[in-house]
């Protein structure tokens, strides 16, 4: 058997079964290189312990409850403030892009260059608006679905 390098990780995790496991077992018992590979892998895997853990928070439920209560109040706020604000941003971006296109469109020789530049800008602005819209839509969907 060639050194089963790609199998060593799963072997170390005890995730190989039957024939494969026995074959790797047999190989490792005879191959010092693979034993070294496994050892190194284990050592760095063990160091991950240093990552530590979070402290418990016995009051998490209270937090969850109050988050559920406050978020029920939000839909009205969103409709009143966020929608008009989004519309305003859209308008401003439109005006900005419009002014850019007129400013850059004069010399014919550089038209192609400018065209791709503007297209990039349009795509960026478009996707920003798209994201904003999707965010808004999904939040409304969620809050509607949960409004009691």
């Amino acid at each position: 058997m060639k050194c089963p390098i790609k199998k060593l990780s799963a072997y170390m995790d005890g995730e190989l079964s039957g024939e494969t496991r026995r074959a790797v077992d047999f190989h490792v018992s005879r191959c010092a290189d693979c034993r070294m590979r496994l050892k190194r892998m284990r050592l760095s895997w063990n160091i991950l312990d240093a990552l530590g853990e979070a402290q418990d928070n016995p009051y998490l439920y209270t937090r969850v409850r109050s988050a559920l209560m406050t978020r029920r109040e939000q839909p009205r706020w969103r409709e009143r403030v966020l929608l008009p604000v989004t519309a305003l941003i859209a308008l401003a971006l439109g005006l900005f892009l419009g002014s850019l296109m007129t400013r850059h469109s004069v010399p014919v020789s550089t038209l192609a260059e400018n065209d791709s530049y503007t297209r990039e800008l349009e795509t960026a602005a478009g996707s920003m608006l798209g994201d904003l819209y999707m965010e808004l839509a999904s939040q409304q969907l969620v809050s509607r679905g949960n409004g009691k």
Partner: peptide, 28 residues
Amino acid sequence: HRQSILNLAYRYVGNQDDAEEVAQDVFV
């Protein structure tokens, strides 16, 4: 489940405050 969720979040975000915020949102 709060402790295991807190720990899971902590391993990504690396601090208690963010981990608690994530854990809260998980249950919400």
